[in-house]
């Protein structure tokens, strides 16, 4: 299975976590790392190129920091332009049909803050529902997100552990060693991986 990581970070030079997470991702067999802000600094998204790229992959990943419970601007623009009617959705839009989709998000707060009654009052899964619903409309199978929590206070050792998990996940996907039915029953992909390791 070929995995496409659509990475969107407008200020990577300020990021503690993502710099480490994306390092050497391209080296993994079957994984294409696609750095949107570096490719389209003027928001000049090449739609047909992006569509070709999507067609060539079986699993689409949105990897981005969670900004105001959403994606950075360019990734939003990407959705608006690339996911065209009759291509990605609609009765004739089957280009993405059957592909896997999931989010990799980095968030400042801990997992605990993302639940009813707490600081953010919603779970990450709820907050990501516009994206998972987009995937559903495009006839893709949405997997739970891979979430890096607590980036405001994270330590280097923890970042490295997240990175190992993330890369493990990508390798498993690329080698088709992920049981999709089983995975969808978890809240986070992190939980699934933890159990595999457990």
């Amino acid at each position: 299975m070929k995995v496409l990581v659509l990475f969107a970070h407008p200020a990577l030079h300020k990021s503690y976590v993502n710099k480490v997470l994306i390092e050497e991702m391209n080296v993994i067999d079957g994984v294409t790392f696609h750095d949107l802000y570096e490719l389209y600094p003027e928001f000049d998204i090449d739609v047909s190129h992006e569509q070709d790229l999507l067609s060539q992959h079986d699993c689409i990943v949105f990897h981005h920091p969670l900004f105001w419970y959403s994606t950075p601007a360019l990734l939003k623009e990407w959705q608006d332009l690339v996911l065209q009617h009759d291509w990605a959705f609609g009765s004739k839009g089957n280009a993405l049909k059957g592909k896997l989709f999931f989010n990799v998000v980095t968030v400042g707060g801990p997992r605990k803050a993302y639940q009813k009654g707490e600081f953010h009052n919603h779970s990450i899964n709820e907050l990501l529902s516009p994206l998972t619903q987009t995937a559903a409309l495009c006839k893709m199978t949405a997997l739970p997100p891979f979430v890096v929590h607590g980036t405001h206070a994270i330590e280097d050792k923890e970042i490295q552990q997240y990175k190992n998990q993330y890369f493990r996940l990508l390798e498993l996907l690329a080698t088709k060693n992920v049981d999709v039915n089983k995975v969808t029953s978890y809240k986070y992909l992190n939980d699934y991986l933890k159990e595999l390791e457990g």
Binding site: G108, G109, P110, K112, H149, G150, H152
Partner: peptide, 11 residues
């Protein structure tokens, strides 16, 4: 955040 993370029985 640190405090809460330490409390959590997270992965």
């Amino acid at each position: 955040v640190r405090e809460q993370m330490d409390d959590e029985e997270g992965l």
